[in-house]
């Protein structure tokens, strides 16, 4: 028995969504970790600026997260639209 037609397309979209999400999550993970590490270093050096540093860190992480969000959108398009 072979997989044909619509089933083949469905299985390909599921595999594609999984690959898109898995590979796309690597970059933001590394980036957010780096931002967090640098923010910890900076707070350790200058604890009185902790509030400003935390705010800047959160904004930077949210911006560097965007490539992961694009892969999430692509995965959602593959799952619900195709």
């Amino acid at each position: 028995m072979s997989i044909e037609g619509m089933d083949l397309i469905r299985s390909a979209t599921y595999i594609g969504a999984g690959i898109a999400m898995g590979l796309g999550a690597i970059g933001p993970g590394v980036g957010q970790g780096l931002v967090g590490a640098k923010a910890c270093e900076a707070i350790g050096r200058n604890p009185s600026e902790a509030a400003l540093l935390t705010r800047t860190m959160l904004v930077g992480q949210a911006v560097s997260e965007s490539t992961g969000i694009y892969s999430l959108v692509v995965a959602m398009l593959l799952l619900f639209v195709v």
């Binding site: 949210a62 911006v63 997260e65 965007s66 969000i69 694009y70 999430l72 959108v73 959602m76």
Partner: peptide, 16 residues
């Protein structure tokens, strides 16, 4: 594209 998809993806991903 980046500014709008960031907000949309975050909220949609959260609700999913």
């Amino acid at each position: 594209i980046s500014i709008s998809f960031r907000l949309f993806g975050n909220m949609m991903g959260g609700s999913i």
